[in-house]
Design a protein around this nucleic acid. Sequence first.
DNA 1: TGTAGATTCAACCCGACGGTTAATTAGCTA
DNA 2: TAGCTAATTAACCGTCGGGTTGAATCTACA
Lengths: 114, 114
Amino acid sequence: MTADPVSAVFGALADPTRRAILARLATGEATVNELAAPFPISVQAISKHLGVLERAGLIVRTRDAQWRRCRLDPTPLRTVAEWVDQYRRLWAERYDALDDYLHDLKETSHDRDP
Amino acid sequence: MTADPVSAVFGALADPTRRAILARLATGEATVNELAAPFPISVQAISKHLGVLERAGLIVRTRDAQWRRCRLDPTPLRTVAEWVDQYRRLWAERYDALDDYLHDLKETSHDRDP
DNA sequence: TGTAGATTCAACCCGACGGTTAATTAGCTA
DNA sequence: TAGCTAATTAACCGTCGGGTTGAATCTACA
Protein backbone atom coordinates (compact mmCIF):
# COMPACT_ATOMS: atom_id res chain seq x y z
CA MET A 1 0.00 0.00 0.00
CA THR A 2 3.00 2.25 0.64
CA ALA A 3 4.37 1.10 -2.69
CA ASP A 4 6.13 3.52 -5.00
CA PRO A 5 3.93 4.97 -7.77
CA VAL A 6 5.37 2.84 -10.56
CA SER A 7 4.80 -0.35 -8.59
CA ALA A 8 1.30 0.82 -7.73
CA VAL A 9 0.46 1.26 -11.42
CA PHE A 10 1.94 -2.05 -12.52
CA GLY A 11 0.23 -3.75 -9.59
CA ALA A 12 -3.09 -2.20 -10.53
CA LEU A 13 -2.70 -3.47 -14.09
CA ALA A 14 -1.84 -6.99 -12.93
CA ASP A 15 -5.48 -8.01 -12.71
CA PRO A 16 -7.76 -8.85 -15.65
CA THR A 17 -10.85 -7.44 -13.94
CA ARG A 18 -9.17 -4.08 -13.44
CA ARG A 19 -7.86 -4.03 -17.00
CA ALA A 20 -11.39 -4.74 -18.22
CA ILE A 21 -12.65 -1.86 -16.10
CA LEU A 22 -10.09 0.43 -17.70
CA ALA A 23 -11.10 -0.77 -21.15
CA ARG A 24 -14.70 0.01 -20.33
CA LEU A 25 -13.78 3.46 -19.01
CA ALA A 26 -11.81 4.16 -22.18
CA THR A 27 -15.20 4.45 -23.88
CA GLY A 28 -16.46 7.00 -21.36
CA GLU A 29 -17.42 7.65 -17.76
CA ALA A 30 -19.47 5.15 -15.81
CA THR A 31 -20.95 4.59 -12.37
CA VAL A 32 -19.90 1.80 -10.06
CA ASN A 33 -22.99 -0.26 -10.76
CA GLU A 34 -22.54 0.16 -14.50
CA LEU A 35 -18.96 -0.99 -14.18
CA ALA A 36 -19.93 -3.94 -12.01
CA ALA A 37 -22.72 -5.18 -14.26
CA PRO A 38 -20.64 -7.30 -16.67
CA PHE A 39 -18.76 -9.11 -13.91
CA PRO A 40 -19.88 -12.15 -11.93
CA ILE A 41 -18.55 -10.71 -8.68
CA SER A 42 -20.18 -8.47 -6.10
CA VAL A 43 -20.33 -4.71 -6.43
CA GLN A 44 -18.28 -4.47 -3.24
CA ALA A 45 -15.44 -6.33 -4.92
CA ILE A 46 -15.64 -3.91 -7.83
CA SER A 47 -15.54 -1.03 -5.38
CA LYS A 48 -12.30 -2.44 -3.99
CA HIS A 49 -10.84 -2.71 -7.48
CA LEU A 50 -11.79 0.90 -8.09
CA GLY A 51 -9.95 1.83 -4.92
CA VAL A 52 -6.81 0.16 -6.25
CA LEU A 53 -7.16 1.94 -9.59
CA GLU A 54 -7.75 5.26 -7.86
CA ARG A 55 -4.71 4.89 -5.60
CA ALA A 56 -2.66 4.14 -8.71
CA GLY A 57 -3.96 7.35 -10.25
CA LEU A 58 -5.58 5.50 -13.14
CA ILE A 59 -9.10 6.71 -12.42
CA VAL A 60 -10.73 9.64 -10.67
CA ARG A 61 -14.07 9.41 -8.92
CA THR A 62 -16.41 12.37 -8.74
CA ARG A 63 -19.60 12.58 -6.75
CA ASP A 64 -22.76 13.10 -8.77
CA ALA A 65 -25.83 12.97 -6.52
CA GLN A 66 -25.89 9.44 -5.10
CA TRP A 67 -23.71 8.13 -7.88
CA ARG A 68 -19.96 8.05 -8.12
CA ARG A 69 -18.89 8.62 -11.68
CA CYS A 70 -15.58 7.06 -12.57
CA ARG A 71 -13.36 8.54 -15.23
CA LEU A 72 -10.18 7.14 -16.73
CA ASP A 73 -6.97 9.11 -16.18
CA PRO A 74 -4.44 7.79 -18.69
CA THR A 75 -1.53 9.80 -17.30
CA PRO A 76 0.10 6.89 -15.43
CA LEU A 77 -0.10 4.81 -18.60
CA ARG A 78 2.10 7.38 -20.24
CA THR A 79 4.63 6.75 -17.48
CA VAL A 80 4.39 3.02 -18.09
CA ALA A 81 4.94 3.55 -21.80
CA GLU A 82 8.03 5.60 -21.06
CA TRP A 83 9.35 2.94 -18.71
CA VAL A 84 8.85 0.20 -21.28
CA ASP A 85 10.44 2.37 -23.95
CA GLN A 86 13.74 2.07 -22.09
CA TYR A 87 13.77 -1.50 -23.35
CA ARG A 88 12.48 -0.91 -26.83
CA ARG A 89 15.99 -0.89 -28.22
CA LEU A 90 16.51 -4.40 -26.86
CA TRP A 91 13.67 -6.09 -28.66
CA ALA A 92 14.51 -4.04 -31.72
CA GLU A 93 18.04 -5.46 -31.53
CA ARG A 94 16.51 -8.86 -31.22
CA TYR A 95 14.75 -8.23 -34.48
CA ASP A 96 18.03 -7.04 -35.98
CA ALA A 97 19.78 -10.16 -34.71
CA LEU A 98 17.17 -12.26 -36.45
CA ASP A 99 17.74 -10.27 -39.59
CA ASP A 100 21.47 -10.84 -39.29
CA TYR A 101 20.94 -14.54 -38.77
CA LEU A 102 18.76 -14.87 -41.81
CA HIS A 103 21.31 -12.83 -43.72
CA ASP A 104 24.14 -15.11 -42.55
CA LEU A 105 22.24 -18.11 -43.81
CA LYS A 106 22.39 -16.72 -47.29
CA GLU A 107 25.96 -15.46 -47.19
CA THR A 108 28.96 -17.68 -46.69
CA SER A 109 31.59 -15.78 -44.73
CA HIS A 110 31.23 -14.36 -41.26
CA ASP A 111 33.54 -13.51 -38.38
CA ARG A 112 32.87 -14.03 -34.75
CA ASP A 113 34.23 -11.85 -32.00
CA PRO A 114 33.87 -12.70 -28.30
CA MET B 1 0.20 -18.79 -10.37
CA THR B 2 -2.40 -19.72 -12.98
CA ALA B 3 -2.57 -16.09 -13.96
CA ASP B 4 -2.93 -15.13 -17.59
CA PRO B 5 0.34 -14.07 -19.28
CA VAL B 6 -0.45 -10.37 -19.31
CA SER B 7 -1.22 -10.35 -15.60
CA ALA B 8 1.93 -12.36 -14.95
CA VAL B 9 4.06 -9.76 -16.73
CA PHE B 10 2.42 -6.77 -15.05
CA GLY B 11 2.67 -8.55 -11.71
CA ALA B 12 6.33 -9.27 -12.26
CA LEU B 13 6.95 -5.60 -13.02
CA ALA B 14 5.06 -4.46 -9.91
CA ASP B 15 8.14 -4.78 -7.70
CA PRO B 16 11.09 -2.35 -7.58
CA THR B 17 13.61 -5.11 -6.87
CA ARG B 18 12.55 -7.02 -9.96
CA ARG B 19 12.59 -3.89 -12.12
CA ALA B 20 16.11 -3.18 -10.85
CA ILE B 21 17.10 -6.74 -11.78
CA LEU B 22 15.76 -6.19 -15.28
CA ALA B 23 17.65 -2.91 -15.55
CA ARG B 24 20.83 -4.70 -14.55
CA LEU B 25 20.20 -7.48 -17.06
CA ALA B 26 19.65 -4.92 -19.79
CA THR B 27 23.41 -4.35 -19.63
CA GLY B 28 24.20 -8.03 -20.11
CA GLU B 29 23.94 -11.49 -18.61
CA ALA B 30 24.63 -12.10 -14.93
CA THR B 31 24.68 -14.87 -12.37
CA VAL B 32 22.35 -15.04 -9.40
CA ASN B 33 25.03 -13.92 -6.96
CA GLU B 34 25.99 -11.03 -9.18
CA LEU B 35 22.37 -9.97 -9.36
CA ALA B 36 21.92 -10.32 -5.61
CA ALA B 37 25.02 -8.33 -4.65
CA PRO B 38 23.53 -4.81 -4.78
CA PHE B 39 20.49 -5.73 -2.70
CA PRO B 40 20.21 -5.88 1.08
CA ILE B 41 18.16 -9.07 0.95
CA SER B 42 19.18 -12.71 0.90
CA VAL B 43 20.19 -14.52 -2.25
CA GLN B 44 17.26 -16.86 -1.70
CA ALA B 45 14.88 -13.94 -1.97
CA ILE B 46 16.57 -12.92 -5.22
CA SER B 47 16.19 -16.49 -6.45
CA LYS B 48 12.45 -16.23 -5.82
CA HIS B 49 12.29 -12.94 -7.72
CA LEU B 50 14.08 -14.60 -10.62
CA GLY B 51 11.48 -17.35 -10.55
CA VAL B 52 8.73 -14.76 -10.91
CA LEU B 53 10.55 -13.07 -13.77
CA GLU B 54 11.15 -16.42 -15.47
CA ARG B 55 7.50 -17.46 -15.18
CA ALA B 56 6.56 -14.13 -16.73
CA GLY B 57 8.92 -14.87 -19.61
CA LEU B 58 11.04 -11.82 -18.88
CA ILE B 59 14.25 -13.74 -18.30
CA VAL B 60 15.72 -17.07 -19.31
CA ARG B 61 18.11 -19.01 -17.13
CA THR B 62 20.79 -21.22 -18.62
CA ARG B 63 23.02 -23.56 -16.70
CA ASP B 64 26.74 -22.82 -16.94
CA ALA B 65 28.76 -25.13 -14.70
CA GLN B 66 27.65 -24.35 -11.15
CA TRP B 67 26.35 -20.97 -12.17
CA ARG B 68 22.99 -20.02 -13.53
CA ARG B 69 23.34 -17.24 -16.04
CA CYS B 70 20.32 -15.03 -16.37
CA ARG B 71 19.50 -13.26 -19.59
CA LEU B 72 16.83 -10.68 -20.25
CA ASP B 73 14.10 -11.58 -22.72
CA PRO B 74 12.39 -8.31 -23.67
CA THR B 75 9.66 -10.01 -25.71
CA PRO B 76 6.91 -9.64 -23.06
CA LEU B 77 7.77 -5.96 -22.75
CA ARG B 78 6.82 -5.59 -26.36
CA THR B 79 3.43 -7.05 -25.44
CA VAL B 80 3.13 -4.53 -22.60
CA ALA B 81 4.01 -1.70 -24.96
CA GLU B 82 1.30 -2.84 -27.35
CA TRP B 83 -1.22 -3.07 -24.54
CA VAL B 84 -0.42 0.43 -23.33
CA ASP B 85 -0.54 1.72 -26.89
CA GLN B 86 -4.28 1.03 -26.90
CA TYR B 87 -4.55 4.03 -24.59
CA ARG B 88 -2.01 6.28 -26.26
CA ARG B 89 -4.70 8.19 -28.08
CA LEU B 90 -6.28 9.09 -24.75
CA TRP B 91 -3.28 10.78 -23.20
CA ALA B 92 -2.41 12.26 -26.57
CA GLU B 93 -5.81 13.92 -26.54
CA ARG B 94 -5.02 15.13 -23.07
CA TYR B 95 -1.76 16.56 -24.39
CA ASP B 96 -3.59 18.23 -27.21
CA ALA B 97 -5.97 19.80 -24.74
CA LEU B 98 -3.00 21.03 -22.71
CA ASP B 99 -1.37 22.32 -25.84
CA ASP B 100 -4.50 24.21 -26.74
CA TYR B 101 -4.62 25.63 -23.25
CA LEU B 102 -1.01 26.77 -23.29
CA HIS B 103 -1.49 28.12 -26.76
CA ASP B 104 -4.45 30.14 -25.65
CA LEU B 105 -2.40 31.55 -22.78
CA LYS B 106 0.40 32.78 -24.97
CA GLU B 107 -1.62 33.49 -28.06
CA THR B 108 1.32 34.87 -30.03
CA SER B 109 4.87 33.89 -29.25
CA HIS B 110 7.92 32.18 -30.69
CA ASP B 111 7.78 28.43 -30.92
CA ARG B 112 10.71 26.12 -30.57
CA ASP B 113 9.24 22.67 -30.64
CA PRO B 114 11.19 19.37 -30.88
C1' DT C 1 37.79 -38.16 -2.29
C1' DG C 2 36.35 -34.44 0.15
C1' DT C 3 35.33 -29.77 0.53
C1' DA C 4 33.96 -25.20 -0.86
C1' DG C 5 30.88 -22.41 -3.52
C1' DA C 6 26.45 -21.39 -6.26
C1' DT C 7 21.85 -22.12 -6.28
C1' DT C 8 17.52 -23.93 -5.11
C1' DC C 9 14.15 -26.20 -1.99
C1' DA C 10 11.43 -26.38 2.33
C1' DA C 11 9.23 -24.55 6.10
C1' DC C 12 7.71 -20.72 8.28
C1' DC C 13 6.06 -15.59 9.37
C1' DC C 14 3.37 -11.75 8.28
C1' DG C 15 0.92 -8.64 5.59
C1' DA C 16 -1.65 -7.73 1.24
C1' DC C 17 -5.10 -9.37 -2.15
C1' DG C 18 -9.43 -10.90 -4.02
C1' DG C 19 -13.52 -12.40 -2.69
C1' DT C 20 -17.68 -12.91 0.39
C1' DT C 21 -21.79 -11.16 3.51
C1' DA C 22 -23.62 -7.74 6.60
C1' DA C 23 -23.89 -3.13 8.16
C1' DT C 24 -23.42 1.87 7.29
C1' DT C 25 -23.44 6.33 4.94
C1' DA C 26 -25.32 9.47 1.58
C1' DG C 27 -28.83 11.35 -1.41
C1' DC C 28 -33.09 11.28 -3.99
C1' DT C 29 -38.09 11.14 -3.73
C1' DA C 30 -42.90 9.98 -2.32
C1' DT D 1 -40.51 11.86 7.67
C1' DA D 2 -39.81 7.13 5.70
C1' DG D 3 -38.13 4.46 2.37
C1' DC D 4 -35.46 3.23 -1.79
C1' DT D 5 -31.02 3.17 -4.24
C1' DA D 6 -25.88 3.84 -4.77
C1' DA D 7 -21.79 3.06 -2.84
C1' DT D 8 -18.55 2.35 0.80
C1' DT D 9 -16.98 0.26 5.13
C1' DA D 10 -16.29 -3.59 8.28
C1' DA D 11 -15.31 -8.11 9.42
C1' DC D 12 -13.90 -12.27 7.90
C1' DC D 13 -11.75 -16.21 4.92
C1' DG D 14 -8.31 -18.52 2.00
C1' DT D 15 -4.45 -17.67 -0.88
C1' DC D 16 -0.39 -15.45 -2.54
C1' DG D 17 3.92 -12.52 -2.13
C1' DG D 18 8.09 -11.11 -0.13
C1' DG D 19 11.04 -12.03 3.34
C1' DT D 20 13.66 -15.04 6.62
C1' DT D 21 16.62 -19.30 8.12
C1' DG D 22 18.21 -23.94 7.40
C1' DA D 23 18.94 -27.92 4.64
C1' DA D 24 19.66 -30.08 0.11
C1' DT D 25 21.67 -30.32 -4.53
C1' DC D 26 24.97 -29.75 -7.96
C1' DT D 27 29.64 -28.70 -9.72
C1' DA D 28 34.45 -27.50 -9.77
C1' DC D 29 38.73 -28.42 -7.95
C1' DA D 30 42.81 -29.36 -4.42
